[in-house]
Design a protein around this nucleic acid. Structure first.
Lengths: 202, 202, 202, 202
DNA sequence: TCCTAAGCGAGACGGTACGTCTTGTCTTCCA
DNA sequence: TGGAAGACAAGACGTACCGTCTCGCTTAGGA
């Protein structure tokens, strides 16, 4: 028999996450201490530790909600575009819009340990999506496991760096332009990999 | 008239750098404290701070020697391959060998704040080299400044992620295979960018 | 509504004070560092600083208990001896006994910065008592404010130096003998001041 | 064969002493470090330790010159007033003038460890003078050794405290008034001691 | 509706590491 | 080659966080 959870718990976690985000925007991730968070959230120090093991855990939890909604949207998008996606990686656009909307937060994270954490999460999401994409396209048939792994990492690295670069140069390009650029580049990589794979395994 | 520097200074810095590297290999970057370093190096705490402002500064200094020697080698390589480099980014191979040789160190850095620092340095070096490469190939003529910037970051991100990935999967590929894969991918990106550039600016 | 104080606080302060006294007796005041105290007391360094601002503050606090009990005893004594104290400064005897009992501690303080601190406290106590005594005797009526101030400091200085001298020469005199000597000297000063005062203000 | 002392030595010591005095006047004794002194004096750190063992040693050395000149003056004064000094302790006046002239320095020392040092020196001088004075007056004949010791410390303590008190209350009394007050008090103590001594040893 | 378990704030506590400061020794370089 | 300059080892200082803990108060949810 599962007990009904105390509803205060979510209130507390929400308060901590909000406080953290506020503080990141104010001072940057690295300057935020656990003490800062609990003070801002009007939460006792020990209460913090009953919910989270560290500042990073709060951040990851905050991120998880983004992660879930993003994943859901991407999933949706992926299914809609079947069976023939006219261009590769349709979910990239979603990601671009997500970053565009949360630019102040991502800017406050940039170059700090929170940035690395966020990048890790995004990379993880992308890795899953890109690798599935590559399988779907039957590139796996013509590529060895290692090669398709490498291809995946190549693309993920390229995309995340473009995102990071774009984060600090919004003025230069709109979402559409970044998207178009990435589409072009990724397409060329996919084609090149296909050709080479075919040549190697006729 | 500049004063002759006390030769003890270099001895001290060398001792600190060696101690740091040793400790990174033993415990991982994040677990190494300033006190650990000075204890291992038999250096007084205050002496540490007369030479470096932080642990990261020691690490960056250690890295600088690598950076210089790498840059020199790359420079050399670049000049030798003129006027017609048969394949793009000849210096990539050097980088791969460098990482292959220092694999234990890079592994100890991976995922820790030292890893981010190292990645930052390598990224900086690559950014310089790749952007110069792109100019040399006269892609600058057919590409807008922003597009060639994006291309540069695309390639740099792709390369660094491949390096990171390879760092943890040595068994899969030898240097030659990584090099060949990168050459293929980068070539396709460069060609694609050229074509698109030409189409846009006939 | 006043908050109930955490009872751990007194435990901690008591531990710090005891540790300090122990260490003074072992090494002398000046050789005792904050680190020594917290190590001996099994107290965290930061906890020390939440309670006291320095080693001297701990010592002053230790002293305060003596101060209070001494003052209370002196007060008591003063009231009992009314209305006609047969000899001046009856509380001196108490002070002599106090020092006699704590001789090892005072010896360990002598000549060190703790000695100066202790002397300052005792001087302060004496200043209060002597100046009140002088007022009580109506010397204030015949003496100007400045003269009675000077008289107070004259007597306080004389008494404290006798105490210090006696501290290192216990063998020579017992409490009774010091007391009798001081009574004689002080009496002569009080009489002389009275006469002179009367002569000046008939 | 005694070596001719290097003239530079005195120059160096003089520089260190002057620097110390300057710094005491600027920041107070306790805030002055060895590094401060050598920096101000334009002297190398090791050179400092060639000449003095500590900051206090420099101060004592500075003081010694005062001490010598004071002692000489006192000696002179003592001889002139023979065989029948009309009032006790003629040298007190000299001391008062000395303090009056160096008031800024003594104020900067007050309450700090330098103050204790200075007081120690002055006390030592006074002890010598007072004890000789008491012998001269043949009080030694009527008083036991211990009693005359006690009398000496009683007077010395009283005088030094009056000096300290006066240091911070210049406005109240001029040298003459302090001198007259001390004469009165001391006289009464000497007479009282003589009477008691005679009564005890008829 | 009460009452009991839990969530919670407050903050004391033992620790660890920090960067600064001062001391006294020891090495290097220069005149 | 002797002494000034200053690099160095040592270690205390006061600060900032950390993660654990103890303590009462409040409050939600089941009896």
């Amino acid at each position: 028999m599962t007990k009904k959870p105390d509803r205060r718990i979510n209130r507390t976690r929400q308060a901590l996450q909000s406080a953290l985000i506020e503080l990141i925007l104010e001072k940057g991730y690295d300057a935020v201490s656990v003490q800062d968070i609990v003070t801002r959230a009007n939460i006792g120090r020990s209460t913090f530790y009953t919910h989270y093991s560290s500042r990073d855990a709060v951040f990851s939890d905050s991120f998880k909600s983004l992660e879930i909604s993003l994943n859901m949207a991407l999933q949706q998008d992926l299914e809609n575009s079947r069976p023939a996606p006219s261009y590769p990686l349709p979910y990239i656009e979603l990601l671009l819009h997500h970053i565009d909307k949360n630019r102040p937060l991502y800017r406050a994270l940039a170059g700090q340990s929170g940035g690395a954490l966020a990048a890790k999460h995004i990379r993880k999401i992308l890795l899953g999506l890109v690798s599935r994409d590559i399988s779907t396209r039957n590139l796996g048939v013509v590529l060895s496991k290692t090669t398709s792994d490498a291809l995946t990492h190549y693309l993920v690295g390229a995309i995340t760096d473009i995102l990071t670069w774009w984060l600090d140069h919004k003025t230069k390009w709109q979402v559409a332009e970044v998207h178009s650029f990435l589409t072009m580049m990724i397409t060329s990589n996919l084609e090149s990999a296909t050709k080479t794979g075919k040549r190697l395994r006729p």
